[in-house]
């Protein structure tokens, strides 16, 4: 004969088994991304949300790819 408390606990486990499941349906809307929102690349300690400073840094690096400017 099994312990009734054990049976009760076992039943409770089966009853709450699905409680930890996350919904897996994706609400797809045409033309709209379902991806999580992404941080802006300038929202960090280095650029402190200053988009212009970030753009200046990248522009300087991109300009540096021009060896005519670097050599002459």
């Amino acid at each position: 004969m099994m312990n009734p408390k054990f049976l009760l606990a076992l039943g409770a486990v089966f009853l709450v088994a699905a409680c930890g499941e996350k919904p897996q349906t994706v609400a797809v809307k045409p033309g709209q991304s379902a991806a999580k929102p992404d941080d802006k690349p300038y929202q960090n300690d280095q650029f402190k949300g200053d988009r212009a400073a970030w753009e200046r840094t990248l522009r300087a690096r991109a300009d540096n790819q021009n060896e005519y400017k670097r050599v002459n």
Partner: peptide, 28 residues
């Protein structure tokens, strides 16, 4: 986010591969 361009372009020895703002690349 570190203010750097893609590694592939920055590593390119002949600067055949360019990356960055389209306007700057067009000028180059």
């Amino acid at each position: 986010a570190e203010g750097k361009l893609p590694a592939c372009a920055e590593m390119c020895s002949t600067k055949a591969l360019l990356a960055g703002d389209g306007d700057v690349l067009s000028d180059i």
